[in-house]
Design a protein around this nucleic acid. Structure first.
Lengths: 158, 158
DNA sequence: CGGGATTGCGCAATGG
DNA sequence: TCCATTGCGCAATCCC
């Protein structure tokens, strides 16, 4: 049935969110080449949505998703891991795209090859048929002067 | 041409930047958590490096690069525009990828079609050639013994 | 419940 | 100057 997997999320975001970002730390970031983008994103209120709509069967587990303490060491670790995963995923995605593009090129080439072959075969066939025709005419002339083929008729022996 | 395009930004360690972004606003409806990504990025030090290395030809224009005043109205405007552009660009990118994939499928189909045709033509050609051989034999053997076709051979005149 | 893989998104640098 | 593209990080999900 329908897959509600994709939230719509009409983000008409006006984020006028107030944020406090204090982070005085020697981020152990993986020394990215361009630390250029040393940004940081500040999370916004995360709805600790406890009792969602139809929820009911779920045991009342604590459901704690603390505000992702940016200072937390574990947090940074998770972030770094994810960043890595993201990079990997994107690389593969890009690679796949390139592969697909290349496949197109290969197929196009192959296509040309095949078309050329078809052209060749067609020509060969044509020549052979003409030969046959001629032969047929000869036979007709010599053997049966009476039986004439109408113009355009062919004699194909199979 | 040395292009200092890539800032190195040796963030050796004091990356500890603390920023305070207070913009308490009646977040009115925007508090919508559903706006899952209502984040904000905090910029990092942007080296307002005025006296760069080899620069020289450029007229001493004001060279104003205010560290992106987040509060600036114009800033927000630019950001929003860019976000829009980004979204658009990504959409096109994705679309292109899908198109490419579809192209692969089409080409594959076309290929099969062509190969089938080749097979057909080849067969036709083969038959015709055999016929030729047959006739050649007949002629060579003699000019008399009428039907002397090999078992299975046919002579069809059309 | 954990953890990598994806995905949508915003920011900034850069290209045109 | 503006838009387009691209690399990157964050967070929410998806999916084992």
């Amino acid at each position: 049935m329908s897959r509600p997997s994709q939230l719509k999320l009409t983000t008409t975001d006006h984020n006028g969110v107030s944020v406090i970002q204090s982070q005085a730390h020697a981020s152990s970031s993986s020394s990215l080449p361009a630390a250029v983008a040393g940004l940081q994103q500040v999370p916004q209120l995360v709805p600790t949505n406890p009792s969602a709509g139809g929820g009911k069967a779920l045991p009342p587990s604590k459901m704690k998703k603390p505000p992702a303490d940016k200072d937390s060491e574990e947090y940074r670790q998770r972030r770094e891991r994810n960043n890595l995963a993201v990079k990997k995923s994107r690389m593969r995605s890009k690679q796949k795209a390139m592969d697909t593009q290349q496949r197109v090129n290969e197929l196009k080439e192959e296509n040309e090859r095949l078309e050329a072959k078809i052209k060749l075969l067609s020509k060969e066939l044509s020549v052979l048929k003409d030969l046959f025709l001629e032969h047929a005419h000869n036979l007709a002339d010599n053997v049966q002067p009476a039986t004439r083929y109408a113009p355009g008729a062919h004699c194909v022996c199979v």
